[in-house]
């Protein structure tokens, strides 16, 4: 179990409010993406987010464009997991490929508020919020391996460089 502070949002949060399109060609260093994370939805997020934070949301998180920056911005803001009732498909894949854990879980957004703390056990697929317990399907080993390495590219780099040596 690890403890995490949560940021709670609603449904249909789209990639434009997660990382505004106007910055896609202007801001090039991924570390600078974080300053604009969620700026059109919650201006208090970027200045206050900390390493280890988790986002809790309703349905269809990350709908809109396929822009990977919408995951990278949250990642560099410190977000390690996003727990939503459902995800946009591309966003879900982008999360894993960028090393941010996406968790599909219903009901958590209704019982938590921004600033609350939750306990997360990824291996067991368990979340505790106050005295309530939620479950989710833990990622299979292959996806967990990608997450552990920080994403698809670093994972493959490690694997293939090792084979070469």
């Amino acid at each position: 179990m690890t403890d995490h502070r949560v940021w709670v949002y609603g449904s249909n949060v789209n990639t434009d409010v997660i990382f505004p399109g106007k910055y896609t060609y202007k801001v090039r260093d991924p570390k600078d993406f974080a300053a604009h994370a969620l700026e059109d939805l919650d201006p208090s997020f970027a200045p206050n987010a900390q390493a280890g934070d988790v986002i809790v949301a309703g349905r269809n998180w990350g709908c809109g464009s396929s822009r990977e920056q919408a995951v990278i911005a949250l990642k560099y803001a410190g977000v390690v997991a996003i727990i939503a009732e459902s995800f946009n498909g591309l966003y879900f894949r982008n999360c894993v490929n960028q090393g941010v854990l996406p968790i599909v879980c219903e009901g958590l957004a209704q019982v938590t508020q921004t600033g609350d703390s939750i306990a997360l056990d990824v291996a067991r697929g368990e979340i505790r919020a106050g005295d309530q317990r939620f479950t989710f399907a833990p990622p299979p080993p292959s996806v967990q391996a990608i997450l552990d390495e920080g994403g698809l590219l670093p994972m493959l780099q490690k694997r293939f460089r090792k084979e070469v040596i």
């Binding site: 590219l153 493959l156 780099q157 293939f160 460089r161 084979e163 070469v164």
Partner: peptide, 8 residues
């Protein structure tokens, strides 16, 4: 990207 991975 494939070469960046280190695969041959």
């Amino acid at each position: 990207t494939f070469l960046q991975i280190g695969a041959e």
